[in-house]
Simulated assay, not measured.
Amino acid sequence: MRYDRPLLDRLTHLLLILGVIVFGLPLWLALTASTHSAGALQSGIAPLWFGGEGLANYWQLLSQPIAGLGVSALRLLANSLVMALGIAIGKIAISLLAAYAIVFFRFPCRTLCFWLIFVTLMLPVEVRIVPTYGVVARFGLIDTYAGMILPLIASATATFLLRQSFMSLPQELFEAARLDGAGPLRFLKDFVLPLSKTNLAALFVIMFLYGWNQYLWPLLAANSPEHATAVISLKNLVQSTDTLPPWQLATAMAVMTVLPPVAVIIAMQRFFVRGLTDTEK
């Protein structure tokens, strides 16, 4: 049933348009600025339309080492992609097994184990950053992909969300699979995973964005430009020279840093929405 409220509809659309402008204007300014020359951006007036240096700026970032960093933007984006994929896949794998064990296995202190995992949500990365860095340094994993990924692959949030999803599955399904001779791994592979694919897709998007936008940990764990990520290199790009910052390159790098998360969201939008809203199995 739909109510005919033209004034409310216009107000809603106006708020949506204002929201798009507020969130989209910085991206538009970065996109247009990345197509101008350095001299055009030193005037103090942000260009609102495209210039003629876009291809040259992007090609310079992708094909040549960035001054002060020693690596190209392509290497930085590849590092970010490896880290984001490693964190997303690792978080889902560990959380999947943990939630599966908590829901479908009967063992002592099962509820206590879940709440101990859940309590870790109260400990942000900043609180445990010093002991985490000490452990990673002791194992010799500083400035490696493993050191950048492994400390971040445990996720209480993903475990909680998957637990809630698994609890919506009928217990009779597990009993029927057991009567048919299906073991725990087969039940996980043939029943739980197919029924939870939309939830896993939604979690993948969330965890990929979490890994891609990491700043503090890769700033500490990656000491060399060969393992630096695109996000932490934006600041270094602006401060890499003693002259005026190359804003045309900085804005082009910002645009390229935004594109992979946007591509993941667009590609998995349908699964992402279904995974967050579909509760029927």
Rank of each mutant, 00 (worst) to 15 (best):
L188N: 05
V192C: 10
S240I: 13
M167G: 14
L219D: 11
A177V: 08
Q269A: 02
W217G: 02
R186N: 12
V231A: 03
F191Q: 14
I266F: 00
T257S: 11
Q171A: 10
L216P: 01
S224H: 03
L200M: 13
Q214P: 01
W217E: 04
I265Y: 00
W247L: 08
M256F: 03
A222L: 06
I232R: 01
G211L: 06
W217P: 00
W217D: 02
Q269Y: 03
S168N: 15
N236D: 14
E172M: 03
V258G: 03
L193T: 08
A202L: 02
L220S: 13
I265V: 04
D242M: 14
V264N: 00
T229M: 07
Q171S: 11
A222T: 08
A176W: 15
K235H: 05
A267T: 09
A250V: 04
I266Y: 00
L249F: 05
W217A: 06
A182N: 10
G181A: 11
N236G: 14
L193K: 05
N199L: 10
L244G: 04
L185T: 08
L216G: 08
D180P: 10
V255Q: 05
P218Y: 04
L216N: 09
L259Y: 00
S168T: 15
Q248P: 01
L193R: 05
M253E: 01
K189D: 15
R186Q: 12
N199I: 12
I206D: 00
A263V: 13
P245Y: 01
H227Q: 08
D190G: 08
K235Y: 04
H227S: 08
K235N: 09
K235M: 09
N199F: 09
F174I: 12
M167R: 15
Q269H: 06
A202S: 04
M256A: 07
S196N: 08
F187R: 10
T241R: 11
I232F: 02
L234M: 04
M207H: 13
P184M: 07
V255L: 04
G183F: 07
L169N: 08
M256D: 05
L193N: 04
L179C: 09
L179P: 00
P246D: 03
K189Y: 12
S240E: 11
I206H: 00
E172A: 03
K235F: 06
S224A: 03
E175F: 13
W212L: 10
K189M: 15
W212H: 06
L200I: 14
M167E: 15
Q239G: 07
L195A: 11
A221N: 09
E226G: 12
M167Y: 13
M268D: 04
Y215S: 13
M207Y: 12
E175G: 12
V258T: 07
V264S: 00
A230F: 02
A201T: 13
